[in-house]
Design a protein around this nucleic acid. Structure first.
Lengths: 111, 111
DNA sequence: CATAGTACATTGTTATACTATGTATTTTAT
DNA sequence: ATAAAATACATAGTATAACAATGTACTATG
């Protein structure tokens, strides 16, 4: 059918929700980039490309919503762990509020 | 606070949801562009710029999700009314399904 | 008669997900 | 042993879509 339109649309919806999802997942937890991808994929079946997560995390860090620290591994490549900052938590609250509103609005126009 | 980040984010969230909202509103009704803006604003408090709705409707028409017809007015500028096509209705169903899933997923990671 | 509102439309800008590509290490399969 | 897959980071380029700005044209109102 209109497979392609739908796929583009899904990608667009992701654009907005991704940062929201990532911040949500980071709330109360520390994850590194690759782990975030796996974790979100497992929890939500949403697949995030690596070329998406790393620029996204850099953006979130520049905006001071997350902080990061390198952690050396006994074996393998060091991992960059991300933590929510206070600003990040506050921002997440605002986003949550908007999301809940949006959810309600869409529910309303659907019937 | 982080007003600007939040605003940008809201704009991004809109990117995906707008076409979904418009198709939903058009289900069972005929509206012209300007009316859509007013109607959605009134129902959802979401403000859509004119520079957003007209290109959007053209896109939806090109994708054959909506059809349009000019209706002359006794007074004033003629109005271009939009109607959902069959493809549009089917596409809307797929979108609805994805949206419901997404809603559930986000609910899940929030706790 | 100027301003606000109605109604269409286009151009240029900006933000961001994704593809492709690259580096480097470790684990698993043949 | 060695090739392939998985882990872990990163960047450059592309495509999409909302929005601001701008323009046209008509109508209603103060």
């Amino acid at each position: 059918m209109n497979e392609e339109f739908i796929n583009k649309w899904k990608s667009q919806v992701k654009k907005g929700t991704l940062s929201f999802i990532v911040l949500n997942v980071l709330k109360g937890n520390e994850y590194y980039g690759y782990e975030l991808i796996e974790n979100i994929k497992q929890k939500t079946a949403i697949e995030i490309a690596e070329g998406t997560i790393y620029p996204l995390m850099n953006r979130l860090k520049k905006e001071k919503l997350v902080d990061s620290k390198w952690v050396e591994q006994e074996t393998g490549i060091p991992r960059k762990y991300y933590v929510l900052t206070e600003i990040g938590e506050e921002t997440l609250k605002s986003m949550q509020k908007y999301w809940d509103e949006l959810e309600g609005l869409i529910k309303k126009i659907k019937k």
